[in-house]
């Protein structure tokens, strides 16, 4: 289908973008890479009166390694972040998880911040941000910026703490801690589909932070003590997320995946290569 008609605006600064958002109220939508929004517009699931394209804002195009985090500006595509030379060393979880986001072709245009803004409960980037305890930076038309922790930012299916006149300017992924290990696993119908269950883990000597995507209405991250046998903790986690049946999988299957993949992930599971092979399916 074709989108319903809308005005198209391309501001050249953040301030102008926020001003336009404020002016138009609920009638406006921002567009970044368009890899989620254009499908929604084409199917007329949304019919905004104004589309505000952030592609013309020059100073959003940066990846910066700072003291304790990697900052990714709203102009950066998923492909560009994946190609960032120090990624596997700076934020190893991203290097493992990002190849699972859609396809080569969608990553060429889809942005990192757009995925965070969209807040799909099965999406990989929100899961990584929540598991690592990262932050979202938002700016309003007065040029005021605020930072929100991932756990407060994601509030439900496609629902976030972003206010109507705010632009996400940057997301911050904490840098890898020495001694910690980072692991990611996902099960989807086919590679490139949204996850049925995705798990991300940060493994320290005495504890495990386990993030789960695709089950609750948002990515959920929990700390588990690093017992010899994590089965009980994983079972409790699996039951706590309110899994539901849908077209892709039953709730029982999702709980089982959390238990099985969780155990594998914590134990060290199959290598990345086996993982890569499995996803060719």
């Amino acid at each position: 289908m074709k989108p319903a008609a809308f005005d198209y605006l391309r501001p050249s600064s953040r301030r102008e973008a926020c001003e336009l958002l404020h002016e138009a109220g609920d009638d406006a939508r921002l567009i970044a890479g368009g890899q989620s929004l254009m499908a929604v517009l084409n199917m007329r699931l949304a019919q905004p009166k104004r589309l505000i394209d952030i592609a013309g804002i020059e100073d959003l195009h940066y990846i910066e390694r700072r003291d304790d985090h990697l900052a990714v500006g709203a102009g950066v595509t998923q492909a560009e972040l994946l190609e960032y030379p120090g990624l596997a060393e700076a934020v190893p979880l991203l290097a493992q998880a990002m190849p699972w986001i859609g396809h080569w072709q969608t990553r060429n245009r889809g942005t990192v911040c757009g995925s965070i803004a969209h807040a799909d409960p099965s999406a990989e980037l929100p899961l990584c941000l929540a598991t690592l305890g990262g932050q979202v930076v938002l700016e309003n038309r007065r040029g005021k910026s605020r930072r929100v922790m991932a756990e407060d930012f994601f509030q439900g299916v496609l629902t976030t703490d972003r206010r109507q006149d705010e632009l996400i300017t940057e997301v911050r992924f904490p840098l890898a801690r020495p001694g910690a290990e980072y692991r990611f696993r996902e099960v989807a119908m086919r590679h490139g589909d949204f996850a049925i269950v995705a798990l991300a883990a940060v493994i320290d000597s005495n504890r495990v932070t386990l993030g789960v995507g695709g089950v609750a209405d948002r990515p959920v991250s929990r700390e588990l003590a690093r017992h010899a046998d994590p089965s009980e903790a994983l079972n409790a986690l699996a039951w706590s997320l309110g899994a539901e049946d849908d077209a892709h999988a039953t709730a029982a299957y999702r709980r089982q995946l959390i238990r099985e993949l969780g155990r594998e992930l914590i134990a060290g599971g199959p290598s990345d290569e086996e993982n890569a092979h499995a996803r060719q399916g």
Binding site: G34, M38, A39, N42, A55, A79, Q105, T106, N108, R109
Partner: peptide, 13 residues
């Protein structure tokens, strides 16, 4: 140079 879906892009872009 980047392979992209032209149904998910506007002509004006």
């Amino acid at each position: 140079g980047r392979a992209s879906r032209s149904c998910l892009m506007l002509a004006v872009q």
